[in-house]
Amino acid sequence: MEFEETQKGNPHGLTINQHVFPKKSIDRFSGANGLVQLYRKGGAKVIRVNSSNNLFCAKRAWDQRTEAVIGKSIEDRFQVLAESIHSGSSEVIGHFEKKVVEDFFSLWRTRHKFMSEGLEDLAINGIDGDSLTKNEQEILERKHVIFFRDGVMPGRFAAGAHVFGYMDNFRQNNLNMQWGIVRAGEGEFIVPDCFQDMMIIPVSPKLLIVADQPNSTLTRSEVAVINQVAIARSTNYYFARSLSSCPVYQESPPRLQRFFSK
């Protein structure tokens, strides 16, 4: 779906390029040059990009409130945990951390869905809506107010409700799910644009948070299996600090056979 452009110069500072996977998370995978190596599916070569590249972003697929309040709150809590895991301060995903991890995973997957499928405009009977100028509409969105145009609400304003709905469903469906901190003993991890149905969250080139997997250090072959899953689940691209440092394997070693047969 095409995105709705702002007024020239975007005077109210609405977020147009919205990160699906957070900029801070991408930055943990960057090399000394501040870049990651990215491969676009169907592309001819690997390219080097920074975390601000538009490839990582949806175009105004959700409204400003979902971006600046709902999404930011979920992201901020997760980034504190991710930094703690990365520094070695946190070694267990306990009850509190479980909620942080699952809310973030749900947000990531939901954003990817918004980017891929968009949100249809919503017509509501009995609501005519006000005659608003483009400037007035943008002021309202900046103030996190929903508006209607001729009885139709722009689809992006439904994003917040979807985020909370998917998040609640995810929690309820995974009440007994346990998460583990997984390290790469050899090699590095690949990050897809989304893991889809596989409950894996990349933290750094050597660290993942993985559902139904105890805290563990993986062999090179096991890292290769996860990287194969990342490539298979990716929609448009995948990236890493150094793709040449990321092994890829076609068959699951016994220890990961059950998990990756879903």
Rank of each mutant, 00 (worst) to 15 (best):
I181N: 00
K98N: 04
P247R: 02
I127C: 10
F259L: 14
N135E: 13
G185P: 08
R258T: 14
I85G: 01
R233H: 09
S84V: 09
D63F: 12
G165R: 13
F96V: 11
T66K: 02
I26P: 04
D103V: 03
R183M: 04
I209N: 00
T110K: 02
Y166H: 15
M1R: 06
S245V: 02
Q7M: 15
L35K: 15
P214F: 13
G13W: 11
E67W: 10
V225L: 15
Q18R: 06
Q18T: 10
S131I: 14
L35C: 08
Q18F: 11
E67T: 09
L207F: 08
F259S: 02
H112Y: 13
I93F: 10
E75W: 05
K23W: 10
I139G: 04
L175N: 14
E251Y: 13
V49K: 11
E136W: 09
R111N: 06
C194P: 01
N173Y: 10
A61H: 03
L38G: 00
K206Q: 08
D130T: 12
F157C: 01
A211V: 10
N135L: 14
Y237E: 04
E4A: 06
L207M: 13
V248E: 00
T66M: 05
Q257N: 10
E251V: 15
F189S: 02
D212W: 15
Y238C: 09
V210I: 13
N54T: 07
Q257F: 15
H12G: 00
A159I: 07
K23H: 14
S242A: 05
N54W: 03
Q79I: 14
S204I: 04
R183G: 03
V182P: 04
N125T: 12
L81G: 02
H12T: 05
G34I: 09
F157D: 02
T219L: 11
F189V: 00
V46H: 02
S30I: 04
R149T: 08
L243R: 04
N125G: 15
E83D: 09
L208K: 08
